[in-house]
Amino acid sequence: MQDGQVPADVAIVGAGPAGAAAALRVLALRPDADVLLLDAAAFPRDKTCGDGISAHVLELLDALGVPATSWAGPPVAGMRLTSPGGRVVARRCARPNRVIPRAVFDARLVAAATAAGARLVQHRVRALRVLADRVVLDDRWSARVVIGADGANSTVRRLLGAPRSPESTVAVAVRGYAPTVLDPDALVIEFAGGRRPAYAWSFPVAGRGSNVGFGVFDRRGGGSRADLLAELARLLPDHPPDPATVRGHQLPLSTGPRWHPDGRVLLAGDAAALVNPLTGEGIYDAVASGALAGRAALRGPDAGAAHRAAMRATFGHHHRHTALLARLVPHPRFLDAAVTAAARHRRVFDAAVDLGLGPGTASAADLVRVASSGLTLGRGSRLT
Rank of each mutant, 00 (worst) to 15 (best):
M1G: 12
Q5V: 12
V6W: 08
A8G: 00
D9W: 10
A11Q: 03
V13E: 11
V13M: 06
G14P: 01
A15G: 14
A18C: 05
A18N: 13
A18D: 08
L24C: 11
V26W: 06
L27V: 09
L27R: 12
A28E: 15
L29D: 15
R30N: 08
D32P: 00
D34T: 13
V35E: 04
L37A: 03
A42F: 07
D46L: 06
G50T: 11
G50Y: 01
A55L: 03
L58V: 15
E59M: 11
G65I: 13
A72C: 07
V76L: 11
A77P: 02
A77I: 08
M79H: 00
R80S: 14
S83P: 01
G86V: 02
V88S: 03
V89L: 05
A90G: 01
R92I: 02
R95E: 05
F105Q: 07
D106W: 07
A118M: 13
L120T: 06
V121D: 08
V125D: 08
R126W: 02
R126P: 01
L128W: 04
L131D: 14
A132M: 00
V135D: 01
S142I: 00
A143M: 00
G148I: 01
A149R: 01
V156R: 00
V156I: 15
R158G: 02
G161R: 13
A173D: 12
A173L: 13
V181C: 12
L182Y: 11
A186M: 08
L187K: 02
I189P: 01
E190L: 03
G193W: 13
G193P: 09
A198F: 07
S202A: 15
S202D: 11
A206I: 01
A206Q: 14
V216Q: 09
R219T: 03
G221W: 14
R225A: 13
D227I: 07
L228Y: 06
R234E: 12
R234A: 15
P237M: 11
P237C: 12
H239Q: 10
D242P: 00
A244N: 02
R247D: 04
G248Q: 08
H249D: 08
L251A: 07
L251F: 07
T255C: 06
G256L: 02
W259L: 04
V265S: 06
D270F: 04
A272R: 04
T279C: 06
Y284W: 15
A286Y: 08
L292F: 06
R295K: 12
A296V: 04
A297L: 09
R299Y: 09
A306L: 06
A310K: 06
T314F: 13
F315V: 03
T322E: 08
L325N: 05
R327I: 03
A338R: 07
V339Q: 04
R346H: 14
V353P: 00
L355V: 07
P359C: 04
A365G: 10
D366Q: 13
V370P: 05
R379H: 11
T384Q: 11
